[in-house]
Nucleic acid binder design. Structure first.
Lengths: 349, 349
DNA sequence: GTTGACTGACAAACCGTTTTCCCATCTGGC
DNA sequence: GCCAGATGGGAAAACGGTTTGTCAGTCAAC
């Protein structure tokens, strides 16, 4: 059995109350008394039971993280940031995977409530607004990498319009004038927003992105591979391709290379997500929009801590993207990635 | 403020003791009394505070998961399985990323101890034995996807020897006789074990895998790409390549294709990890060893629950792999992946 | 009518902390 | 010698549950 504060008090020859105060630096007592208490605690390997503390303090220093997206590519990328932000307040993360199942989600919400978490983070896909996790929960909620379909909730996500703009601008810098966009299904809000951003970038330069140059398909490598070939036939004058993610971009790059098209000299390619393992290994390495998910996680964490302190900020906050510039659309750089926009925060940096 | 059991008791017109028993199905009482209590709890939205319960029960129904590997490719793959196993006992997961930093690790162990977790899972890289997380911890520990450098600890990991054997056997089935192995640094125990497994498979068929056919390099796509070209020059008779992971395999497949070598007709290729996004999109799609990490997570979870119940099983347990058969080494199948070995458990299946 | 077994519910103690309130004992000034 | 104000420490009451022990009432059997 673990040592209790009673054990500490007994060994130190003081009362339980004094032991508590001694360990927490509260109250007034002779320095040697405090020292004796601390020393006894050390000998016994005493660690105050936080569950018991939370009974009196009213805070558990625990927050839940409910993912609706499983442990795919995006939630884990945020986790480190969330954890780093929370550790500033010595909060711990309780993990739940609702797996797109409303029953499971309800069950987890109940479990988190029973554990009296101080707050909750809900992560999802950025693609579309998601239903709120419940109303009148006894703790603040922050939606991360998704938006709640309720203005009174707090959502923090990625600025897809900005990402699209950043990607298109990089192609423009490269000198492209005939830009095509290969992306995912138009039913996704994120897809539409990225198109809008790209369009804005082109308009700023007196160009345009007609619907005929926007191709929708699945978010996969095969789709990019085949779409690139098709594009060459229907729009042979295209000199820049903006892709909906790095998988599409990889398919495009491979497809073009196999057809003897030089990237970026004949056609420049820009990806999205900056999934390093894929983007950096493509031949040539892909210039790609980085959503700064580690930083998003950090901001979500600090925002939740503020909300726990009573300072809530309802509404949707969209964080800007960066772009990692590599050889597939270098625009005046060498081979190493060069950052445009905020340099991304990374762990331990 | 959340409703307490005192509120429930007052509304139901019974004592606190009776309310507790009524809600937990214990004690004996008139059915209508129990019904009245349950009804009152429902009206008030009462959820028993688990932190308070844990004070008397001695169990927190919380287990920690400490990763030494960040949230890379392997730990998230196990998370779902761990969670599914733990949910059978309504346990929750407390997440900690030690990030290869001993100080941070010590800090997290302290925090988990203070929270009185029932048990701990430590995940790492399978590549080499790892130091124990500490001795005489007040809860059982299971090492997952890594092995502790102490026989008295419980470790559950992947059988790399079996994986290597499975991969080589698939190449043999394909009819390959001159097999080469492109893999990671020989300092990794996992690398050495896979070599041993491959060697065993060849020996069983009267063939051998000489050291000259084993090439060590980084675990990356570029390494595979360049090693494939080099191999063609030095060992032009090679007809099968066993790769240390899917990234290497992808580099190999792309490299061979660009040189006009047909995969699998001229040279068959087998990958490792079955990282679907990469393996299934390669041209041709990669046959690849699957480590069944979801299942590993499940088994780790149930093993920890047993240990919490007092039933510990010290030692190292190595779980067999499967192999997803695709076009890069089809050996009598079509284009869809075919499973050899145990069909992998997947969530919700 | 007494005994004994059983039923249904309650009071109180307990889990491990924190916090509030109060009580000795000094100290110094008159 | 007496009082005010520090100083150092303890007793007890929370916090929100669970569990133990007890007790009044009911009922059947002798």
């Amino acid at each position: 059995m673990a040592a209790t504060i009673r054990d500490v008090a007994r060994v130190a020859g003081v009362s339980v109350a004094t032991a508590s105060k001694g360990l927490n630096g509260k109250g007034r007592m002779r320095p040697e008394t405090r020292e004796r208490i601390v020393q006894s605690a050390r000998e016994l390997g005493f660690r105050a039971n936080r569950n018991a503390s939370s009974l009196t303090s009213g805070r558990t220093f625990t927050v839940g993280l409910l993912t609706r997206d499983g442990y795919g590519r995006f939630t884990p990328a945020m986790l480190g940031g969330v954890e780093d932000a929370l550790s500033a307040d010595t909060c711990s993360l309780l993990l739940c995977d609702a797996r797109r199942d409303a029953v499971r989600e309800r069950h987890y919400i109940d479990a988190l409530t029973a554990r009296r978490v101080d707050g909750l983070i809900v992560t999802g896909r950025a693609t579309d607004p998601a239903p709120r996790v419940g109303r009148d929960l006894p703790f603040p909620v922050v939606y991360a990498y998704t938006t709640a379909d309720d203005e009174r909730a707090t959502s923090i996500t990625v600025d897809d319009e900005h990402g699209g703009w950043l990607a298109a601008r990089q192609l423009l810098r490269q000198g492209c004038t005939q830009i095509a966009h290969l992306t995912g299904p138009p039913s996704y809000a994120a897809v539409r927003q990225r198109i809008a951003g790209a369009r804005r970038a082109l308009t700023e330069k007196g160009l345009e992105l007609p619907d005929s140059h926007v191709v929708h398909g699945p978010f996969g490598e095969e789709a990019g591979y085949h779409a690139a070939r098709a594009l060459l036939e229907t729009r042979p004058d295209v000199d820049g391709i903006l892709c909906g993610n790095d998988q599409i971009a990889r398919g495009v790059a491979d497809g073009l290379t196999l057809l003897g098209v030089r990237v970026p000299d004949d056609i420049a390619v820009v990806g999205y997500d900056n999934w390093t393992l894929l983007a950096a290994s493509t031949r040539p390495p892909l210039t790609s929009v980085d959503m700064n998910l580690y930083r998003l996680g950090r901001i979500v964490g600090t925002t939740l801590l503020q909300a726990i302190d009573g300072d809530r900020e309802p509404g949707i906050r969209r964080l800007p993207c960066s772009i990692a510039v590599r050889a597939s659309c270098p625009a005046g750089t060498g081979d190493d990635p060069v950052w445009v926009g905020d340099a991304p925060l990374v762990p331990d940096a």
